[in-house]
Design a protein around this nucleic acid. Sequence first.
DNA 1: TTAGGGTTAG
Length: 518
Amino acid sequence: MVLVTCNSICYLSVASPDLRRWNHIIKTQVLEGNAGHAIRSYINMQRLGLFADNYTFPVLLKAAGNASYLCIGLALHGQTVKTGFCDHLFIQTALLKMYSSLGLVDDARKAFDKMPVKDVVAWNSMLDVYASSGQMGNAVEVFDTMPSPDLLSFNIMISGFARTGSKISAKRIFERIPDKDIVSWNSMVLACMNSGDMAEAHELFESMPEKNVISWNAMIMGYLKNHLYTKAIEFLDKMKVGNIEPDHLSVTGGLSACAHLGSLETGIQMHKYAKTLGQASSPHVVTALIDMYAKCGSIHKSLEVFYKFKHKDIYCWNAIISGLALHGCGYAALKLLNQMRANDFGIKPDDITLIGVLSACSHGGLVEQGSQIFGSMEKQFGITPKAEHYGCMVDLFSRARLFDSALKLIETMPFEAGESILGALLSACVIHQDLENGEKAVKLIVSSRGRGGLSDGEYLMFANLYGSCGQWEEAQRWRDMMNESGIVKTAGCSLIEINGRFHKFVAGHGMQSLDRSN
DNA sequence: TTAGGGTTAG
């Protein structure tokens, strides 16, 4: 038998019934992430008169699931029925998983229900389908029915509850495990973090019998999620002192914290540290660097990192375009949009790219260009505008004082105008001291939500609108209404770094110095 | 066969 390789697709030049060889080839291709090659190998195999067996089908079904090949997946399912392999336990489980990967949870359940005999792998696979899609009610039902749950079953349940931020349910399961492993502990820490209970997360973290890099990252990411950025950096520092080497996600978390704090100095140090760790060219880290430099005010450093990086993917492009938007560089953002689509890179913009581009147009006052892109999103980019895109356009029109266009867009859009869209409209009226249009916006907001449904921010914006136009009595009336409704506005505050120290400005209270604490 | 945040307007 002679194997010929062409573009990583294998052909047998001599028709040999060596099915085991083919199974090995297909399996390797799937493991390498080449689902398309695996399917094509299977087609070639069939051309040679060979048929799939109980080793081939699970791998093929996995390939179809991984690559979201719905039609191929359905055809393979049909073949298993025709050939009788659908009675095979492993193939039934593979079918269940394939439907799950295709996002067809109900079909996965059907495959599960059809199984006459279910082993623990089948039960766990069904549990995982529900837990990873956030359907914890169904997961509990399966978990309670299964005959003998193992450690994996318990861990799947905890991670499912962690994802939905259900700390109490997660803990109930956690406490039932006789021999917890590191996955159980890490998932439980995440459950606490995702439900906002940082104290308990910390307590658990301290009492863990062993920790790995994922345990540390769970703490860093948890603090980030809960907006405790300096705490996140503190944990990264502690990793350095301890024996755990931070990985690319630890560094990404640290950079993200710097971005949120606007701390360029710490960000630069973090960049140096990433270099010493050899992670400065990980795609995650590069994206976080581009974002950090832009958010900390240095768009030039941001561009430098972007241009130096050779393997630019959609995340990098989106990060730099959003960064340019933040800095009001409308034309530069448009230029990069064209560059990414050009043959050299050939990357297809997604909905996030377009949010960045539209906001760049908005900040740069490029009304015509923004409108043109928004109008051709479907045709040119194959992207249906979401509420966020409408929000950018309302912002763009409002900033350019084109209130009629903004109002018209709000009236015709297929969504109910949320707080952010109406807020964009209103804040532009405040800036331009435009009482007439501002009142229109107030009426729109009040009528869409009712007076009882107004947020504290909206009450204050109304008051600001009237105040900015010199209507002090009306402004006071809205403030009074806010106080009457029992809303206490949290004081606005901002952090700024001066010579390595953080200073906090709280509205109405001036400046406080801080030592790296929020 | 179970654990982890790269990019998202105002």
